[in-house]
């Protein structure tokens, strides 16, 4: 067992646990959006950042991917941490204003409104990529991926046309933290019969 400190309290962790695992096993809440137990951690949404302090040095790491190490001094809700969370949530409020989940989470951090311009009031997708990873790692279908780069990034099937690789299992819809995938599902799935025939042959 590894011994470390979270928010001033001594906690224990098993080798191989992440800081997020360790915190949750010890009843300490850390917010996440792109994390799901069913898939590999990704470290994209950065809401799960925690502060590591060592002497006068301090840095933020994503707790979902950072391994628990002996002697770490971890802070899950310091000002530095909350500054990152508040800004991300405020920016998400303008990016995906239609998501009630984001609004609730933002409110928990005292963020009620956004100073930034809203370009698409209907948008719910936060581009966390959970749907893509679930489709690849849980289903093995690899029917969807992120398309484009940076600000142009979106979720879609190849060439943004419905594809037969999708087995219409709905896993992506289930793991989606904001419900955005249900609106995209019809644009992703192709003709299930082709997929059925293929899986029978196998």
């Amino acid at each position: 067992m590894l011994s470390l400190t979270i928010d001033g309290n001594k906690v224990e962790a098993e080798a191989g646990w992440s800081l997020l695992d360790t915190a949750r096993q010890n009843g300490i809440e850390i917010p996440t959006l792109c994390y799901h137990e069913a898939v590999e951690p990704f470290g994209a949404c950065r809401l799960c950042v925690v502060e590591l302090r060592q002497g006068n040095n301090s840095r933020l790491v994503a707790s979902c991917v950072y391994p628990a190490e002996q002697g770490l001094d971890v802070y899950t809700a310091s000002e530095k941490v909350n500054n990152v969370r508040r800004w991300i949530l405020e920016m998400l409020l303008s990016e995906c204003p239609a998501s009630s989940e984001i609004r609730e989470m933002a409110a928990q951090y005292g963020v009620q409104t956004t100073r930034f311009e809203i370009s698409d009031p209907e948008q719910e997708c936060i581009l966390c990529g959970l749907c893509v990873r679930a489709c690849a790692q849980v289903v093995g279908a690899n029917a969807i991926s992120t398309v484009g780069r940076g600000a142009q990034k979106e979720i879609g099937s190849p060439y943004l046309t419905p594809g037969d690789d999708c087995v219409a299992c709905g896993t992506c819809v289930t793991v989606c933290p904001t419900g955005a995938m249900s609106a995209r599902f019809e644009r992703v799935r192709g003709v299930p019969s082709v997929v059925m025939a293929r899986s029978v042959k196998r």
Partner: peptide, 21 residues
């Protein structure tokens, strides 16, 4: 950098355009 951001992590994808704005 806004053009070249890969868009994976939120602070960079969302934050750099906001700085520029």
């Amino acid at each position: 950098l806004e053009e070249e951001s890969c868009g994976k992590c939120f602070p960079c994808r969302l934050g750099v355009p906001r700085l520029r704005e």
